[in-house]
Amino acid sequence: MTTALAIKGLTKVYNNGFAALKGIDLTVGQGDFFALLGPNGAGKSTTIGIICSLVRKSGGTVSVFGYDIDVDFPGAKRQLGVVPQEFNFHQFEKVIDIVTNQAGYYGLPRRLGLERAEKYLRQLGLWDKRNNAARMLSGGMKRRLMIARALVHEPRLLILDEPTAGVDIELRRSMWEFLREINQQGTTIILTTHYLEEAESLCRNIAIIDHGEIIENTSMKALLKTLHKEHFILDTREEVPAGLDLSPFDGHIIDPHSIQVEIEKGESLNELFSWLSGQGVTVTSMRNKANRLEELFVTLLAEKGTSPAAVAARAAGGQA
């Protein structure tokens, strides 16, 4: 499989001494639809800024379709289209000019730039607005303008930084539809988001970033499975027999007086307890062990204003 993006040991220390990235590794295969999920301030935009040359990295390597940005940055940039988090176009420039000029910066002749601009403005429903100044567009239209601009040189890898932040639900769905379509046509897509729901409905693979570190990098399916489980630590009165096989409960012995088990959310614990009794083990206390991922999701959901219970339910639904 060809690698669309390979990041190794990437670090970033901003001028004020703040370490925004603490050595991240990330690999995205060609054709993937990949989510980089993390709460505000996790380092998503910093990562993307480095890939597209708006932020200078402090260490590590980045390559896009085999073009190392330290060796051939123009080569890497030609493979890449970026939709940034913040609007960054000339507010008084016309929609058509913004897209056509971008084609020009990528070295396309003007006539081809105009053709491409028409193609993508039509696809994104902005053709009617082509002669409007960008500042006259609604928030959702501005976002779509940036998508058209990012596609005008037909990149193999499209990166979108929180593309649906502040976009209403209906528009969000049509944007998702559009992204799915161009992904099916072969464009590799990476999007950052702090909505699990968005990642869940669009992406095949996911990396989770928090405080400048990748804490999980897996398939969407495997992640939902993890989220769907609860980890318990049980303390026992008797010593746990050393050879006790806890695999039916995805568990293991931590020390002679405690074991850890994984139970699907909402599932009965009675079976576990009666099985343990049968093994001559008495449970004296039990606590829920929140792992870092779960803690993170609590934060993510608090940001979004949803309760953790709701996400558990959704995760369960997502699996079915």
Binding site: C52, L54, R78, L80, N88, H90, E93, Y106
Partner: peptide, 18 residues
């Protein structure tokens, strides 16, 4: 300065132009 201030200098920075 306008390009820097409104950040559309980024349009040029992300492109492969020398």
């Amino acid at each position: 300065f306008g390009a820097k201030f409104q950040r559309f200098i980024e349009e040029i920075q992300v492109s492969p132009v020398s």
